[in-house]
């Protein structure tokens, strides 16, 4: 996908929620949600698409912060949110279907949430 078609918009949680509702009314579909660990905490990307170009809403959060679920607006979001909860250990509230940490059966709890170790490649 051409780079110019992807727009990243940084915002706060309340603003994000109103924006998501507006996007739904405009006929966007939820493309994906993903979380990335950054130095100051975590950032969550919400990608929406209308036909083909996409919009990315991005929020920055801390580990303890509660994130309201958007599965009430886009029902399909519950899968992504459970994934983020299980892999990063973040608190997402009011999910449509909450697996309470039993979505992924990982041997280590929240494996993606831990700080990156200095690895030199290989095993």
């Amino acid at each position: 996908m051409a780079k110019e078609l992807i727009v990243f918009i940084d915002m706060e949680i309340p603003e994000m929620l109103t924006r998501v509702e507006a996007l739904k009314l405009e006929g966007y579909r939820l493309m994906q949600i993903h979380c990335t660990r950054v130095e100051s905490g975590y950032e969550i990307n919400y990608t929406f698409a209308l036909d083909l170009p996409s919009q990315n809403l991005r929020i920055h959060i801390d580990r303890e912060q509660e994130i309201p679920s958007i599965s009430g607006i886009f029902p399909a979001a519950f899968l992504y949110e459970n994934e983020i909860h299980d892999l990063f250990g973040l608190n997402i509230t009011d999910m449509l279907i909450d697996y309470h940490g039993r979505f992924y059966r990982t041997s280590v709890p929240a494996p993606f949430g831990q700080a990156k170790k200095d690895t030199g490649g290989g095993e």
Partner: peptide
């Protein structure tokens, strides 16, 4: 119908941090 999975999670996304 209630789905559940997680039986074949291999952490390949995480592996990208260890592989060239």
């Amino acid at each position: 119908a209630m789905p559940s999975w997680g039986f074949v999670h291999r952490g390949l996304e995480k592996l990208a941090e260890k592989r060239d």
